[in-house]
């Protein structure tokens, strides 16, 4: 079942890709092939393979139940927040926050998570910034 949905989705993707290829503006200075041909070939392969997947589906994978699914979505939200907050509040705070969250969700206790999170953040800061000189995001406090 999963594969049928996936194949259908792939087919829609291929059609969208083909339309987007046709919408590419041609430059007046074009070579013999032009910028559209190769994307159209790709769209064809994408479409054919999607049809293949939909017609001959494999056994469905075991999808996680709703709880686990929410878990992953929550992790994605935390990561997006992390990416957005990084330039605002600086590397050390945002990393400590994100690492604490992930450690907690992977099964550590509350105190252990905070310790691991802060430790991860400071550890990366010391190794990559202080020792190796990598430039990390700076917050208002300079780290």
């Amino acid at each position: 079942m999963s594969d049928r949905v996936f194949g259908l989705f792939g087919l829609l993707l291929a059609i969208g890709f083909a339309f987007a290829s046709l919408a590419i503006e041609e430059s007046f200075l074009s070579d013999a092939v032009g910028p559209k041909a190769f994307p159209l070939i790709i769209a064809t392969i994408l479409g054919l393979s999607s049809i293949g997947i939909a017609l001959k589906p494999d056994a469905s994978p075991s999808w996680p139940d709703l709880g686990r699914f929410v878990e992953i979505m929550a992790a994605v939200v935390v990561m997006v927040l992390y990416a957005e907050l990084l330039p605002v509040i600086g590397f050390v705070f945002s990393t400590a926050f994100a690492a604490t969250y992930l450690t907690w969700r992977l099964g550590s206790g509350a105190v252990a998570s905070v310790v691991t999170g802060v430790g991860t953040s400071l550890g990366i800061y010391v190794v990559f910034h202080l020792l190796l000189g990598l430039s990390l995001a700076r917050g208002p406090l300079g780290f």
């Binding site: 990561m79 994100a98 991860t120």
Partner: peptide
């Protein structure tokens, strides 16, 4: 893994951010 995987994730972010900022 509960300690390891967050480190993996954070190092990945650090690396990519380091390239382009």
């Amino acid at each position: 893994p509960r300690i390891l995987m967050p480190i993996v994730a954070m190092v990945s972010f650090v690396g990519i951010y380091g390239i382009s900022g």
